[in-house]
Design a protein around this nucleic acid. Structure first.
Lengths: 146, 146
DNA sequence: ACTTCAAGTTGTACTATACAACTAGAAACC
DNA sequence: GGTTTCTAGTTGTATAGTACAACTTGAAGT
């Protein structure tokens, strides 16, 4: 096996380990915000509001799933729905103040965990690792599908 | 923000994207073998058989969860239980021939997906990326927990 | 106006998971 | 040697996340 082939094997194995761990720990780390809820809130912050359908399309989730997630987030007062005056079928979703705070808090705590884990890494390696991950994720949707 | 801090941000963001995608696509990619089942079978192959308790400890799963997963894998005839003659509480789990084949088949298909995704990468980058991932996962269980 | 399309909700089912209560067997300790 | 304690595993119950299908409501096209 060439060095390249063996490296691909390793990448596959380690990505699998990471995915499994992330999945197992996602609920335990932030009981107040699942990984999906977190990314939905993040998307709302980034886009400054969007429709449920946009979330479903972007994250390859069924619209019923998004509908229930949105209902839960609204119940928790983390988001609010604003009816689109142009089209009465549409609800534009926005973060509430509380939602913004929770999102920031979870982001801080996640960031702290990553910082700790990467504390010993030289800057040069951090920068290269970050670039590799970006390149990997930017690739054509193959292994996954966004 | 320093280059190191901004790299950590990127690593966090990209790892999150990867984890979310992996989760979303895990079921769709291999309907015959969930990510968890896949890793359980992989562990059995690697260790050439082990106990349910070992699986639970290694993957931080509840023993009841493992018990049900194992029951499903046995029902699918991918593993078999052998009673330990030394200790009648213990069942040593082993892959069956069918289990070995399914595992190999899913491994091949996953490998093909990764290869395709990484096809354009120069060997040098593959090797470095693989090393970074190993280093990341080998770190102290912080963000996750095995 | 009628049909067709789009956004969301609700009913139903399934999977993965945890926690608690339980059974069965092994080990330890007077 | 009998009682207590520990360990392996199963089962009951509950929850979260998910999909698919059927439906409602409103918009757009013909």
């Amino acid at each position: 096996m060439s060095a390249a082939e063996s490296a691909v094997e390793t990448i596959q194995r380690e990505m699998t380990i990471f995915a499994r761990r992330a999945r197992a720990s996602a609920g335990r780390m932030h009981p107040e915000l699942s990984l999906v809820s977190y990314t939905l809130l993040g998307h709302l912050e980034e886009r400054d509001g969007c429709r449920a359908t946009d979330l479903a399309a972007h994250y390859a989730l069924d619209k019923s799933t998004v509908s229930r997630q949105v209902a839960a987030l609204e119940r928790a007062a983390l988001i609010e729905r604003r009816l689109d005056p142009e089209d009465h079928r549409v609800q534009v979703l926005h973060l509430t103040e509380a939602g913004r705070e929770i999102l920031a808090q979870v982001t801080r705590s996640r960031r702290a965990a990553f910082r700790e884990r990467l504390a010993e890494w030289p800057e040069e390696d951090l920068v290269r690792f970050a670039a590799y991950l970006e390149r990997y994720n930017a690739g054509p949707a193959g292994t996954d599908g966004e």
